[in-house]
Structures are given as C-alpha cells and as structure tokens.
Design a protein around this nucleic acid. Structure first.
Length: 292
DNA sequence: CAACCGTGGAG
DNA sequence: TCTCCAAGGTT
C-alpha cells in the first residue's frame, strides 16, 4: 500500500485543478445548503440535483423555512429525484432543527446522526464540508478509489466493511482543513476519473502508484452485482401514484389514482404503504393528496 | 443484515 | 435494446 503522503499531494493538486464548480461548494455556503445537497445526492447524480437544489434554496433558504412548509410541498418540489421519502425525512429533519436545535444545523456528527435521513455518510460529510471537521467520509466513490489505488481490487465489497473505514481514517491528513479537502478530493476523483464503469486512468494523478493497475487491472472477483428489478415492482407502482399526486393541483379521486396500476392487490397494498409512509394522505370520500 | 425504497442517462 | 448504477438510509 502506498504511503498516505504519496497519495495526498497528487490528489490534492488534481482536485485544485479539476474540481467542479458546484454551488454547495461556494465559500459562503451555509450548513443548510450543504445538508440539503448531501441528502439530494444520495443515490442521485449531480446534474439532476442541481436545478432542484437551486429551487429548494430559493423557496426554503433556512431549515425553519422548510419546517414551516408542509411535507407535501417538500415532496412536490422534490420532483423526479427519486426516493421521495428523502424529501419527507428532510422536512422532518428541518422540523427537528427548528424545534430542538434553535434553527441551526448541528455541527457534530453524533447530533447530525440523530436527524431523520442522516446516516453515517451524510453526518460525516456535513461535519466535514459545512463545518471543516476532520471526519472520515466514506461514500461509494471513496470506497472505489481506495479499493483500486490502495487495496488493488477492481471494486469494493458489496457492503461497507470495518476495514474500509479504518483504511479511510488512516489516510486522512492530520490537519483539519487539509482533511476536509482530502475527503472531497477523493470523492471527486471517484466521480470524474476513477469511475465504476470505464475508469479514465490516463487522467488519474495516482495512476503510476495505483495498486490495481500495478497488479495488471484484474477483473472484479466474486459474484456479479445484481441490479434491482424494476418492471412490475412495488417501487414502480408507488412511483406512478406519487407522480400523479405530485402533478395534480389538489386532491385526486381514488378511482384516478388506482387507474395507474392494473394489478388490484398490488395497487391497494402499495397505496396503503404510501399512506403508512406518510407520502400520501387519505381524505374523506375516497380522495387522496400529498400530506398537508 | 438483506431487502426495500425511484429515476433517468451513459455505455 | 438493456444493463448498470448515482455523494445512502432504514428496517
């Protein structure tokens, strides 16, 4: 494994020259702007997040402003980012920040971790990027870069291991500010160069010391990653119903809502689940809407 | 802990 | 065309 110092300088220099100019990286960004971006970016590409994030920051520039809106408005403005429960949790997090934390985004990982929709990764990312903390940030990009450059494998294991977290911690620069930049730099390297499908090794600042390349770029070992099925799934059914409610002005008749899915049993089960999840609110007279 | 939870674009 | 997968979290 290359010594950390042999990776730091080339990666940090590459980042300084190649980083994308994203709005949530502006010097004057607020912790709230960072938090919202991190939640939106969970499993969703940057290009799709950008316009929605801009709109959210115009509508709700502070946690309290979002908390004062209805959960349904958050779901509607979420648009087609996917996993709309994230919008619901972001709204719940805003309420918690307003009511329990004086309207200010907490700066320590442990408190961030108590907020709905904020897991290990997002807590570390907000602490690092919004507050400059020396946190160990491990996302899918970091895992892939470390797997290749350090461990020498094409891809990381299916689920995050303790060894990966320990490795990431051991690579973290001592200095707080440098550590924060290192975190985002490795993520950016994974997003732009050390990609999952077709890595751009000629553009990589550490190609000459990458353990995976030095081993001859061996193919991925182990079971192939099984993609999630889509056609005919509950998620497709739920997606259609939420989309209908999102695109409607007010409440929608149950007849119209159920018309989006042929299978009666599955459709009713999904609708019940959406109500249980708080994404849909049932009204009198078999009518439904996004939660008020 | 494996399964579930949306969506759309690149290869 | 179709598979893969993108700054994960929750149960």
């Amino acid at each position: 494994m290359p010594a950390p110092e042999l990776l730091h300088t080339p990666v940090l220099e590459w980042y300084a020259a190649s980083r994308r100019d994203l709005p949530w990286r502006r010097p004057q960004r607020s912790p709230w702007e960072v938090l919202v971006s991190e939640v939106m970016l969970q499993q969703t590409p940057v290009v799709r997040v950008l316009p929605v994030w801009e709109r959210w920051m115009t509508l709700w520039p502070t946690p309290s402003r979002l908390a004062d809106a209805s959960p349904g408005e958050a779901v509607r403005e979420w648009g087609r980012l996917g996993y709309p429960r994230r919008a619901l949790r972001l709204h719940a997090a805003a309420v918690a920040i307003r009511d329990l934390h004086g309207g200010r985004v907490p700066g320590d990982e442990a408190t961030l971790r108590t907020l709905p929709g904020i897991g290990e990764y997002t807590a570390a990312a907000v602490a690092a990027f919004a507050f400059g903390a020396r946190a160990t940030v491990v996302d899918t990009n970091v895992r892939r870069v470390h797997a290749r450059a350090v461990t020498g494998t094409a891809l990381p294991a299916p689920s995050l291991t303790r060894a990966e977290v320990d490795l990431a911690t051991s690579l973290l620069p001592e200095d707080d500010a440098e550590a924060a930049t290192w975190n985002v730099a490795v993520m950016e390297l994974g997003a732009l160069v050390c990609t999952a499908r077709a890595p751009r090794c000629p553009a990589c600042p550490v190609a000459d010391r990458c353990a995976w390349r030095l081993a001859g770029s061996p193919a991925h070992e182990g079971p192939p990653r099984r993609g999630q099925a889509w056609e005919g799934t509950d998620r497709q059914c739920r997606g259609r119903m939420v989309q209908l409610l999102r695109d409607a002005d007010g409440p929608v008749a149950g007849t119209r809502l159920r018309a989006v899915w042929p299978d009666e049993g599955q459709r009713d089960r999904c609708l019940d689940a959406l109500v249980a999840d708080g994404l849909v609110e049932p009204l009198a007279g078999d009518r439904f809407r996004l939660p008020a």
